Simulated assay, not measured.
Amino acid sequence: AVNDYTHSTAPNRRFPDLITQRLLKAALVGTPGPYSSDELNDLAGHCTDQEDNASKVERQVRKSAAALLLESHVGERFDAIVTGASAKGTWVRIDHPAAEGRVVKGFKGFDVGDHVIVDLLSTDVERGFVDFAGVRRS
């Protein structure tokens, strides 16, 4: 079994899996590891960077999918919960359909955890934007 190569189905996991399997194989057969400490540090940094890049793409796809799903619901009203409030903006999450967006109007006085009513103002599928107007606390 030590000589067999197996991997998970996620392409972004194949390289780290291969590194791990090479290290395990060397340990099991009692030979020196195939990588120096510096090489392992470089490989770990590369794997982390690639995972971060994949996460960014996945997040953008989720945001764009939510914008596409909500595109036909512009003008509708939703129950929401405030998930973020800072100088950069106020963010809410709606449940049906599940999506998050920015409150671009009427957000004063909204705090994280508040249950609010929002109107869907617009979506931008390409950029993954979902914009709401705060109506009131619920």
Rank of each mutant, 00 (worst) to 15 (best):
K88H: 12
K88T: 05
G89A: 08
G89P: 09
G89M: 14
T90Y: 04
T90L: 11
T90S: 09
T90H: 08
W91D: 10
W91C: 00
W91E: 00
W91P: 01
W91Y: 15
V92Y: 02
V92Q: 02
V92C: 09
V92S: 12
V92A: 07
V92G: 08
R93T: 14
I94N: 05
I94Y: 05
D95H: 04
D95P: 03
D95R: 08
H96E: 15
H96R: 10
P97L: 15
P97R: 10
P97E: 03
P97D: 11
P97C: 03
P97F: 14
P97A: 11
P97Q: 05
A98L: 15
A98D: 03
A98G: 07
A98M: 14
A99D: 00
A99T: 06
A99Q: 04
A99V: 09
A99N: 04
A99W: 03
E100H: 05
E100N: 09
E100D: 12
E100F: 03
E100T: 03
G101E: 06
G101L: 11
G101F: 06
R102E: 12
R102S: 02
R102A: 14
V103F: 06
V103A: 05
V103E: 06
V104W: 07
V104D: 11
V104N: 00
V104R: 06
K105F: 05
K105A: 09
G106F: 02
F107P: 02
F107K: 06
F107C: 12
F107R: 07
K108W: 14
K108A: 15
G109R: 11
G109T: 10
G109A: 09
F110R: 10
D111R: 15
D111T: 14
D111C: 11
V112S: 04
G113V: 13
G113K: 14
G113I: 12
G113W: 15
G113A: 12
D114C: 12
D114R: 05
D114H: 13
D114N: 15
H115L: 14
H115F: 15
H115M: 11
V116P: 03
V116Q: 01
V116C: 01
V116I: 08
V116T: 08
V116G: 04
I117V: 15
I117K: 14
I117Y: 11
V118N: 01
V118G: 04
V118A: 11
V118Q: 00
D119L: 07
D119W: 05
D119F: 01
L120G: 07
L120S: 07
L120P: 09
L120A: 00
L120Y: 12
L121G: 10
L121R: 08
L121E: 00
S122T: 05
S122N: 04
S122F: 11
T123N: 11
T123E: 06
T123R: 09
T123M: 03
D124G: 10
D124I: 01
D124N: 10
D124S: 02
V125K: 04
V125R: 00
V125L: 03
V125H: 01
V125C: 00
E126S: 13
E126H: 04
E126D: 14
R127I: 10
G128L: 03
F129P: 00
F129T: 02
F129R: 04
F129Y: 12
F129S: 05
V130I: 13
V130N: 02
V130S: 00
D131Q: 04
D131F: 07
D131E: 12
D131H: 15
D131R: 09
D131Y: 09
F132C: 01
F132P: 02
F132S: 01
A133V: 05
A133K: 10
A133G: 02
